[in-house]
Design a protein around this nucleic acid. Structure first.
Lengths: 210, 210
DNA sequence: GTCTGTTTGTCAAGAAATTCACAAAGATTC
DNA sequence: GAATCTTTGTGAATTTCTTGACAAACAGAC
């Protein structure tokens, strides 16, 4: 499907393409072109063609791209059609919000369980799941084989927990802890989410008025 | 302070440098070097020196960098020492979590108010703030002059609300709506946070086992 | 105080990403 | 159905980003 190894820059743009095409499809628009997409997304038409061509030839000369077909292709490329089990580790404020508000199904996953170390939280219900204690993590993983883990735990516990989950077969980490996980990228994929970093870049870009 | 216009790539790395230096400082480590930082952060020493030199000469040959001094410099560069008013718009699940969990002070801002369109939510208290109705937004902005707004509202309302806030003098948007805001970057800065995009890149990087 | 070792700041080379440009192919018009 | 218009896919040019290399400067040892 893909021509060579895809650069990080391209990968980061794929979700935007997918989102925008979904919007077009919902709006009932049947066809589009790299020029049109470029204008809407603030990119050059050339870049969009270049990006898409990493994965195949989805357009037609003189016509452009069929919105639904291209959206579907991106869905397959990104893997959104799959249904891979995911586990949330850490049922504090953040864990709760993610459990309740992220539509894992829309991203090719399904939430399969929520865990926490605090026995006072265990047993309570979040998003239809009973919070389980970390002691039962091994059992759960052997049974359910989660492909990814969402880490919503304090910085101190993150690396250790990630290692433990890695040994249990988890292949991807969506990491909300305030640290960068250390991992051999050939074995495990890590997506760090640092809201603080994001806010800092905004802070940097604010007028300095010195 | 800065030598020329700073590239996006460099800006994105600054928060990581800052975070890591804060950790070193807390651990009581006094000095470090570009080589050491590079090993820890998974970057080349050359890149770190290049990045830092965009803003000045903070190191000393034969010695390296003083951790506290460099952290302090980055603090100033990013603007974390400031105290600029911020407003949260949208007091649903996400708005609540952000209000309660983001330490705005640590990023050079201070939370000054929370707004929502839903009168049933207005009047309730979140993180010490009484949720105000959007009708009173103009009054609030004239008084408090928030520099940034955190948008935690549905996609449909995002662009309109952003325009309204822009007219009220807001210069930056931390946008959690599921859309990319359209804005003249010379007047207004937008930092889009798309958790869905983040999860999609993880989905893409998962084994395909076809 | 001299000598050795380390590390910076910077320039240049190399690599990567983006944009340009255009032939080829098909759509659309008349 | 011929002529014109549009748009893709792609190789090359350009720009941007990253890495390599080294002189200059200082630290630390003796």
């Amino acid at each position: 499907m893909q021509k060579a190894s895809i650069s990080e820059s391209v990968i980061r743009r794929l979700p935007r393409y997918y989102r925008f095409l979904s919007q077009l499809e919902e709006a009932g628009i049947e066809r589009t072109s790299s020029r049109e997409l470029g204008v809407q997304l603030g990119l050059t038409a050339s870049q969009i063609r270049q990006d898409l061509n990493c994965f195949g030839e989805f357009g037609q000369q003189g016509y452009g791209y069929n919105v639904s077909a291209l959206r579907r292709q991106l869905e397959l490329i990104i893997g959104l059609n799959k249904n891979r089990p995911a586990v949330i580790v850490g049922a504090g404020n953040l864990g709760k919000v993610i459990a309740a508000n992220i539509d894992f199904g829309a991203y090719g996953f399904r939430l399969a369980g929520i865990f926490d170390i605090d026995r006072r939280i265990c047993g309570s219900e979040i998003a239809g799941f009973t919070v389980q204690h970390m002691d039962t993590l091994e059992e759960f993983c052997n049974e359910t084989e989660p492909l990814i883990a969402v880490l919503c735990i304090p910085q101190e516990a993150a690396q250790e927990t990630a290692d433990r989950l890695k040994d249990l077969g988890v292949k991807g980490f969506w990491n909300f802890s305030h640290c960068d996980l250390d991992a051999d990228r050939s074995q495990v994929q890590v997506e760090n989410v640092h809201l603080g970093d994001s806010l800092m870049t905004l802070s940097y870009r604010m007028p300095k008025d010195d």
